[in-house]
Design a protein around this nucleic acid. Structure first.
Length: 470
DNA sequence: TACTCGGTCACT
DNA sequence: AAGTGACCG
């Protein structure tokens, strides 16, 4: 503890401030978007369903009534009121209704014979625009973002001479402390001399996050949860600790307490086959048990990259930086055609490529208007007999027709190579965006800025030889 | 009849 | 650099 910890030099090497990294997660986001569009749903148990029936799909506009309580589609979002009844994501409509007879099922809008997620995408972009006010902002998905608020936290620490102040809405703020989870009042009333540099920065960062969450709530009406820690791995874990509408700070002193009892699969990127394999090969279940495995053994069993990476994960260490990127890197849309519906003729491939290309062209068009960029590459993806195939080509143009016919050409090439095929998934995507900013000198500026874009204070952290990856 | 429709990243 | 596959929700 020190009144001016940020400036203190403890030795010949200055004490580098740790980054304040935040993971923000909208609460049951699609449900919140639907409640915003139909306030009579407020407070009710609801779920959003994506119904993919046989054959074509009638267009259902966002503005139309979309409550179909007899739907048996898959639930892709479940409100907290409904979760209290045991309704879960990926349940079917009928099972969900058995759990909660009062459940209101809102159908995703449809267009071009397929589900259309535009209203959720646009709502997500509005949230990102607000979060980006707080610091370096990385869009992680339609309803999640990482922030690096180190800069603003440092600014406040200097301004306030240390002394973090209790954030807005303290009842929505938690601290995962060395003595267990607590409300944040006690932690924030730590005497000035007792703050560690790292905790003090987290506390200031948490105030920033509380304010951002408040702005999202008042300007857009959406609640979200957040985790505040020193890296993305821990922030992500933390954001899920207290939901909905709460944020959780993870001081460094509590990292081990959080990780040790945690199932390995709870760590990001270990929720699949690799996590299963790690647990099985080592005969363990928890992160604490993984931490006890010597690095040399992990290296032997999982290789020179994955082994050390697991060793660091078990200690809550991650050097994965928050990127400055509020826009998606690719736009894609597609449709699944289950058993009976599988596509078996090129005619049907052509028909569905046209439908899908309508949506993609529309999205590319609005993206160009809003973000002054156009994709340079497009691709088609499909599944046949459980195999996934993708082919790509230079963007042939931005019209529905050019996208659809280029997609068909790619599929024709693939079809020509085989005797029999059955398409059960069909996707079109666009990526490799280039700026079309009006002024060439501005475009040049952005191109040169992109290489070092928005790393902010992250350069203060010690450099790492490699980015995180399994 | 029913595991959708997006996305990101690493490996080769 | 195109294509594959893992992973997330």
């Amino acid at each position: 503890g020190h009144p001016h910890p940020v400036w203190r030099m403890t030795s010949r090497v200055p004490a580098l401030p740790r980054a304040v990294v935040v993971h923000v997660d909208l609460d049951a986001f699609y449900c919140q978007v639907e409640v915003g569009r139909d306030p009579s749903l407020q407070g009710q148990p609801i779920a959003v369903v994506q119904y993919n029936p046989f054959g074509d799909l009638r267009t259902i506009l966002p503005s139309e009534p979309r409550i179909f309580n007899d739907s048996n589609g898959s639930l892709i979002a479940v409100s907290y009121e409904a979760r209290a009844f045991g309704v879960k994501r990926n349940m079917r409509g009928d099972e969900a209704r058995r759990q909660c007879p009062e459940l209101q099922l809102v159908q995703v809008p449809t267009a071009n014979g397929k589900a259309d997620l535009t209203i959720y995408r646009e709502a997500g972009a509005q949230v990102i625009d607000i979060l980006a006010r707080g610091g370096v902002c990385e869009r992680a998905s339609i309803d999640e973002a990482y922030l690096d608020v180190t800069e603003e936290a440092l600014r406040r620490a200097r301004r306030d001479h240390g002394r973090p102040v209790l954030p807005l809405n303290p009842e929505q703020c938690r601290v995962y402390g060395p003595d267990g989870v607590a409300g944040c009042e006690a932690w924030f009333s730590t005497p000035d001399w007792a703050w560690s540099d790292a905790d003090e920065l987290l506390a200031h960062g948490a105030a920033v996050v509380a304010e951002l969450r408040h702005v999202v709530q008042t300007e857009l009406g959406y609640s979200c949860s957040a985790g505040i820690a020193h890296n993305k791995l821990l922030a992500k874990l933390c954001s899920g600790l207290h939901k909905p509408q709460q944020q959780t700070i993870l001081p460094e002193s509590a990292v081990q307490r959080l990780l040790d009892p945690l199932m390995i699969a709870k760590l990001r990127s270990l929720g699949g086959k690799l996590g299963q394999q790690v647990a099985q090969v080592l005969g363990i279940e928890t992160v604490g048990q993984l931490r006890a495995v010597p690095e040399t053994r992990l290296r032997t069993l999982f290789g020179p990259e994955t082994g050390p990476w697991l060793h660091r994960m078990a200690r809550g260490q991650s050097s994965d930086r928050v990127q400055q990127r509020t826009l998606p890197k690719s736009l894609g849309c597609g449709k699944t055609f289950r058993a009976q519906n599988a596509i078996r003729t090129l005619q049907d491939v052509q028909y569905w490529l046209q439908q899908i290309a309508r949506e993609l062209a529309e999205r590319i068009g609005s993206d160009r208007e809003r973000n002054q960029r156009v994709p340079q590459t497009m691709g088609v993806g499909l599944s046949s007999h459980g195999d996934h195939v993708s082919r790509s080509c230079a963007m042939p143009g931005l019209s529905v027709e050019s996208i659809a016919s280029a997609g068909l050409a790619l599929v024709r090439r693939w079809v020509a190579e085989r005797a029999e095929w059955t398409v059960t998934d069909l996707y079109l995507s666009a990526c490799n965006f280039r700026s079309i900013a009006a002024c060439p000198s501005i475009a040049t500026f952005f191109q040169s800025a992109a290489g070092e874009g928005g790393q902010g204070t992250q350069g203060l952290a010690p450099p790492d030889p490699r980015p995180d990856s399994p």
